[in-house]
Design a protein around this nucleic acid. Structure first.
Lengths: 195, 195, 195, 195
DNA sequence: GATGAATGAGCATTCATTCAT
DNA sequence: CATGAATGAATGCTCATTCAT
């Protein structure tokens, strides 16, 4: 085992943890399994991270960091909406693993983990500029957020996570399913934006 | 707890398991915890169920059973679409726990669990009648399914699971969030049905 | 491994734990070592005891129980004081192990474990009847307790624990050391009782 | 922390180790905890000490050194016996931590650690001069040692270690408990010296 | 039907210790 | 002198599961 570089070790742990958490879930992924897959001693993981949970939190932070440097308002001009969504989707598809972890953890009904909402509201707030009516603000903002979150953000994240399994089950090929999803999300969510 | 016969014990186990699985996830919910919460001996659980996984499968079966006896096509007549959705939503909200389990398990990227898709395609097939064009069938059907699944089925299930946490995070009250969601899902999904 | 009798298993665990705790100290005695010495599976220990600490507490309780059924006032009549002390000493020498544990744990300066004092005050209160002066009570009682505790109780417990090592170091034989200790404790403590 | 030279670092380690050993016991005090409390890297501790045990041995040596430069015979002249004991007690009370460690370690029934006896016999031999009868020497010396050790040395060390907890439990204030102990130890031990 | 007792394997975490720099 | 990084072995404890009764 090379003692060369603590930074690389840390990265390797995060990489393997993200993969395993998303494959079997946070709880079923053991530190022992991570250490074996990473080729790193179990105790070394605890040199770099306080505990198992802090690995998860670190993954979240890294994702948020990347999201921040990226999420930009997608405007309504239909000219290139499709390609904009395609880019967005490709960006998110690279983050499939951490997104699946985020969704699974958020769906535990008794945790107070609100990462999903914090991330969503960061992203959605970027687009709030679209709201042109500032009278009667709160009621409209509430509807706007629900619409953005449940008919935009949520379907997209779910698509990223479930797409592959969807293809396997329905025997459709990748390009087609993506094409179809983009058409569906434009028709439904983007064509019904609250303004 | 009156354990009049084995049936009640079995029901109690299922009831507690469903609650706990949804609260902390399938993996973090131990048989020991279930037995303690249910006031039932651990070994008794193994009298009624072969193993932990078969409890989960039994919960799935029960849900599918209930879904089958219920899912009916929601037609396009906008007259009472809203109240129809409201009813649908109330029906599903009672199943919040098992739905959260189903979603969490489906999102593990390495499982071959396709319950989510089997349940979805049962439901969606009921509505396929709506498709009026039978020529060029497959391509259209594919789009239809993607649309139904990712912009209808998925947002609704996610809403059922996340609604309470959404309210806590955004400080909105229950009635309003439901009202808003129904408006959003009608605007987006139902107004863009593939026909 | 016989599954015959949970009570016996529990007793065996306590017996081995007491021995090991006193040999190497509570902290250095691992549950694994106890289980190995007892010929009992590690997990079985946790079936019978909530955690490691509750084994210790159980040992304390058992000792206190035995002490209660035993400690009687030793009166001043010198006729058979010696043989009374000898009996007392033999009784305590059988409890050498738990006494050494009790002392070691009590000497950790940051624990709030007051078992030693609770046990001592039980024993000493039995003898408080000897105090014949009830005027000016508290100051006298305080002195009485300090005297009983630090020049009676403490030397006796320390003797029980250290006697064997004392003999090894000073190369004296058992009978003689006991004889000498009894003479010393009578001369010092019993001849100077607060009355 | 000014780590001007290695000497200070070494001192700091010893200081923190002594504190922690006495607080939680030698076994429960980890090198990691010592290093954190001392603000010194774990590996640095191993630069200064071969292993954990040698820290303990070093603390013992230091104590013995200090004891040697100090222990003087307390003669029988009752004139100022009280103040002599008070001084002795103050000297030992400053060494409470290492004394508690010494006692705890000595009470492990399977260790061959005889530091307690070596220290005691150093101190007691200083006073052996008091013995005026040199015929029949051994039997008398044996009694003398037992008396000095178990009714003098042991109660005093135990008092030093347990005093604070004694006060907490019995709700007595410091001055009073010391006053009482001195009276008790004079009455019992010093008034019954073997001569 | 139900249960007390038991277990092997595994869990997250910590240990004292090492070593290249 | 000092340290960041690493490790094998062990820690207390929990797991799903079994089985005689």
């Amino acid at each position: 085992m090379p003692k060369i570089d603590g930074y690389l070790t840390r990265e390797k742990i995060l990489e393997v943890a993200e993969k395993l958490f998303s494959e079997v879930g946070y709880d079923a992924a053991s530190i022992g399994a991570i250490s074996k897959l990473a080729g790193i001693n179990k105790a070394t993981i605890y040199y770099h991270f306080k505990d198992k949970l802090s690995i998860l939190h670190c993954l979240y932070s890294n994702m948020i960091e990347q999201m921040k440097n990226r999420l930009m308002p997608i405007d309504e001009s239909k000219i290139d909406l499709k390609s904009k969504i395609k880019m967005e989707l490709n960006f998110l598809r690279e983050k499939k693993n951490i997104i699946s972890i985020l969704l699974m953890e958020s769906m535990k009904t008794n945790t107070s983990d609100d990462s999903l909402f914090r991330i969503a509201s960061d992203g959605i707030n970027n687009e709030k500029a679209r709201l042109n009516d500032l009278t009667n603000a709160q009621a409209k903002k509430d509807l706007f957020f629900v619409h953005e979150f449940f008919t935009g953000f949520v379907p997209i994240l779910n698509f990223v996570v479930l797409e592959e399994k969807y293809r396997d089950f329905f025997h459709i090929d990748e390009d087609k399913v993506i094409e179809n999803f983009i058409e569906a999300i434009i028709r439904s969510h983007y064509n019904s934006h609250i303004q």
